[in-house]
Write a protein that binds this DNA or RNA. Sequence first.
DNA 1: GCATGATCATGC
DNA 2: GCATGATCATGC
Length: 461
Amino acid sequence: MKLPYNPNDKNSILEFAKLLKGKTLREACDETILEHDYSGKGNFGQILEKYYFLYEPNSESEPDFAIAGLELKSTPLKQLQTNEFRSKERLVLNIINYLEVVNQEFETSSFWKKNANILLVFYLHQTGYNILDYLIKLVDEWNFPNTDLEIIKKDWQIIKQKIENGKAHELSEGDTFYLGACTKGGKGGNLRAQPNSDIPAKQRAYSLKQGYVNHIIASIANEPTGIYGKLISSVAIAKIQTIEDVVISKFKPYYGKTIEQILALTGVELNTKAKSFYASLTKAILGIELNKEIEEFEKAEIIVKTVRLKENNLPKEDISFPNFKYEEIVNEEWDDSDFKDILEHKFLFVFFQFENKQLVLRKVKFWNMPYSDIMEAEKVWAKTKDIVANGQIVKEIRKGIRLTNFPNKKFNSVSHVRPHASNAADTYPLPTRDGLTNATEYTKQCFWLNNTYVRDEIYLK
DNA sequence: GCATGATCATGC
DNA sequence: GCATGATCATGC
C-alpha cells in the first residue's frame, strides 16, 4: 500500500503528522475507522498508528519509525481555567525489561534506542467524549536538552542499580527526578521476573514525570520560559553534580543559623508571617528570584515540606496532604489512588528546630518513601476506603464530638487520617449513609504523615 | 504530654 | 470559595 508519507524520512513524517493539528481522529483518519466500535474504549495511540499512519505496531525494541529513528507517542492534555495546556498525566514510554537492562549501558539501552527522538501528539482529553473526538492540539518532535539528558542518565542509572540489587519490586517513581519507573498494566499489575531475586516484580515502564511533560508542552507551544529560575546553569555542572548535590551545597552554609541570620546573610527581605515565607526563604537560599519557579523542582515534581522540630526532635505538627473526597476514594484502587501517587513523589524536607524559642535551620533532605512504608500506608488507605464504603465513619458521639473509626496513629506507624477543614460543617458528600449518624456528608479529612514517623524515618536517618 | 477532633489564616 | 499550612482545645 502506498503511504501518504515517507516512513524513512523524518521530515516527511513530521510534515504529515503536523496535519493532525486542529483535527480529531475521526476527521483525520481513513473512513474505515468508522466501521470499528471505539466507543470510549481503546487506545488513542493504537488508532493513530493504524488508521492515520497506516502501519501495524512493530517490534518492541526499535522506534516506531525505525529508519527515521522516530518514536510516536500520543498523550492527553487538560486545559486550565486560564486556557493554558497542561499534561493530564505522566508520559509512559517503553516497558523496562528487568532481565536485560542490567546488561545495558545508557547509550545502548532500550530506553535510549527507542526514545532519543520522539514524535509527540498531544490531544485534549474531555470527559464523556468518544476517543475519536478528542481534538489534537500540539504536534512536534522532541529531543532532550543536554542538561536534562544528564539528569535523565542519572535517573536511568538509579533504576538500573535498583534492579541490579534485586529490588525491582521496590522501584518507585520517587526514586528519580525526571525519568521515572511507573507501574504499567492492569489491576494487580502484571508481574515479571527480575534478576538477582526470586520475588516477582510489578511490570513497570520508563516514564517522564507529569511536571516534565508540562515543560515539553510549554516548549512546543512556545510559551515564555522567563518565569523559571534554574538551579543547574550548564551541562558542565549537570555532568558533575546532581540536583541533590546542588541544593544541599547551597543550604549547608546556613545550617545552624537562625531565620534572622539567614535573612541577614541572603540580604532578602521577607515577611516572616506570610504564608509563602518558607517557600520564599528556600528560593532565597537557592539563589532563585522570588517571582520565579524553580525549574528543576517543577520538572521533577518535588514536594517541599518545611518541618519545625521541637527541642526533643519531634516535629511540632504532623504533615498533611490534600483532602480526599469520599465519593472518589471508594472507587479507587490503590495502584491508581491519589495517595499512592503523592507518596511516590520525591520530597525535599527542610528541617528547622526550636532552640531557645528561635528557629534554627538544621538540615535539608531529599527523600522518597521506602517500599515497605508505602505498603504500610496502603493499609491506612485501605481501611479508610473500607470505612467510607461501609458507612461506618462515626464510632461514637461523646459530648457532641464525633469519634471516628478512621485509622489513627496507633493503627499505623506511618500515616493516619484526621480532619482538615474550616470547621466540622466543612464537608464533602458521602457515597453511603453513615450507620451511626445517617449522614449524607462528612467533615473533610486527609491523610497525614505521623510526626513520629517523620522524626524517626526522615529526620534522624 | 500526646492523640484526636476542630479550627484558623493566608493567598489565589 | 477553597486549598493549604499552621495551630488550638480537650480529655485521657
